[in-house]
Write a protein that binds this DNA or RNA. Structure first.
Lengths: 188, 188
DNA sequence: CGTTCATAGTGAATGACTTCATTATTACCA
DNA sequence: TGGTAATAATGAAGTCATTCACTATGAACG
């Protein structure tokens, strides 16, 4: 598990390893000591790095949890998203799904393929645009999503346990700021 | 682009569509009107949903940006992570990399495979444990990472433009709280 | 010692997602 | 009206990462 070969400066083996312990700074805020130690000697502004790293891991954690939970109900995170969207918004063209779910059309095609194979969604032609194909919940699909979505939301509440309502709003705000900035960067 | 078929209640077509506009609430905090509209009629606590959704998209955006930038230098986000880790911490066993980067051993094997094929990393036997294989930067690998990491950090500063130092720390803290909660949930 | 169990790395199979190219339909416009 | 451009969906191919099974080595303990 450990590597103490310290092939380089004495700094390095103080960095390497340790599981994933978090600590609190002087204001009681969590931070990642290893990350800080790794960047400290570089004499760079740590604020952005630490925040983005935390966002990265938080996103990954939430994703993993969602994926794992969806899997227990024979779905994936993406397919669950499609199912819920159709449940809430009614049937719609695949392209709209791509847009709403911030995904690519090709990806939606794959998700709908899978859902269709499982009998949860069906493709129906669009009356007004013969290029479009609308995805529609089947009875089975509706039944599936209705039977699980509440539990899904409960699951989400557990993840944010111990975070005040106001902090959640602030977290939301800051994350959306990042999204906006990133979108500018990505040119879109 | 739009779907106005309103096959169901009058609610639904007010929900469906729109690109990805964000608005500000009464306190100037960004939120996602579509998401709110979609969940509002369900009479559920929105705080967790909105925050986690924002975290999800923020993580995705940061990931995409990082991936795109790495690609410009012949790398992927994962390979870049390995390269930088080796640069900062010196050569180490693949298992340690997996641990530090919060990835799976199998994934690290793949990343190192790729990096080795590109001549940026080499595998060397571990003197003290013949099961282990250490990954080590080659001269080319060191040169590659040294030539780009500063630009990578600049890139990160741009993404957090307009967010105060204190807010970044708060963002970090809240995200790490989520990570901790998720880890509990994931049992690890 | 030798039996047993844990650990390190990897092969095989799988799934989600991307990009690029292609087909069919619609919109534009001169 | 006829021709060009944009749009909707999908096929093909590739990347990244995950799980499960397997091999080889090391550690623990009788």
């Amino acid at each position: 598990m450990k590597s103490f070969t310290m092939n380089d400066t004495d700094l390095k083996h103080t960095i390497s390893r340790i599981g994933w312990k978090l600590e609190q700074d002087e204001k009681g805020r969590l931070f990642h000591p290893d990350l800080r130690a790794m960047f400290d000697p570089l004499k760079v502004e740590l604020g952005a790095i630490e925040a983005l790293s935390a966002v990265h891991f938080a996103g990954r954690s939430v994703h993993l949890l969602q994926e794992r939970w969806a899997e227990q109900h024979g779905l994936s995170e993406g397919r669950l998203g499609v199912l819920f969207r159709l449940y809430r918004c009614g049937d719609m063209p695949l392209g709209d799904l791509a847009n709403d779910l911030d995904s690519t059309p090709r990806n939606i095609t794959g998700l709908v393929d899978h859902l269709e194979k499982d009998g949860l969604v069906e493709r129906v032609p669009d009356a007004t645009d013969r290029r479009s194909i609308r995805a529609r919940l089947t009875a089975a699909g509706r039944q599936r999503i209705e039977s699980i979505w509440r539990e899904g939301l409960e699951r989400q509440s557990e993840i944010v346990e111990g975070i005040s309502k106001d902090d959640l709003a602030q977290l939301r705000h800051l994350c959306l700021l990042l999204v906006e900035n990133a979108r500018k960067e990505l040119g879109k």
